[in-house]
């Protein structure tokens, strides 16, 4: 059922596996699953190459040193490793960019997809940092803790996503 060489797992199996990761997160790291904070950690270190005063900015400083952010940065690198392993073991390695983009937005060159991807990534993290969490931190973890703010955040995420996807071609 959890074979690495299988092409698919059902979304239910995958969801249960991800949900169970909350147990080591709470017991061993004393935090909930999340992903977007690691972009601040990465951003703070990148910014420190150009701006020696970055660690004086309180927001950046805490993401550069606290245990849970170091753990989360390792977590997202682990996500890339896991997806690499999974795709490799099931002969489903992807190339360049998803053909779905050609259907959704009409892009055919990697260059234009890279440009839209960069803008998308910028908006993605700007929103996640304003909201204080992403689909993992507010979504999976916030809802599992019955957090009122996270529930509002998830509703707003879906609203923003649905409105934007409505402007694209139907997939």
């Amino acid at each position: 059922m959890l074979s690495l060489s299988k092409r698919h797992w059902s979304p239910y199996v995958a969801g249960i596996v991800i949900g169970l990761l909350q147990i080591p997160a709470f017991l061993l790291v004393d935090t909930a699953l999340g992903a977007s904070s690691s972009f601040v950690t990465a951003g703070a270190w990148v910014a420190s190459l150009f701006d020696a005063g970055v660690s004086d900015i309180a927001y950046f400083a805490k993401y550069m040193s606290a245990d849970k952010y170091i753990w989360q940065s390792a977590l997202v690198i682990g996500i890339a490793l896991g997806a690499w392993l999974s795709a490799r073991a099931s002969s489903s390695r992807r190339a360049t960019f998803s053909p779905a983009w050609t259907r959704l937005t009409g892009v055919t060159s990697l260059g234009s997809r890279l440009a839209l991807g960069f803008v998308g990534g910028f908006v993605l993290l700007l929103g996640a940092r304003i909201a204080g969490g992403c689909t993992s931190g507010h979504g999976i973890s916030g809802m599992a803790q019955l957090a009122v703010g996270s529930t509002v955040a998830v509703a707003a995420m879906f609203a923003g996503g649905i409105l934007t996807a409505a402007l694209m071609k139907k997939i």
Partner: peptide, 19 residues
């Protein structure tokens, strides 16, 4: 959470990804 969530949703659709 409201404004950030909306911006995040727009970003998910444009990026085709969550963080």
């Amino acid at each position: 959470v409201l404004i950030g969530g909306l911006i995040l949703g727009v970003g998910i659709a444009l990026a085709g990804a969550c963080p």
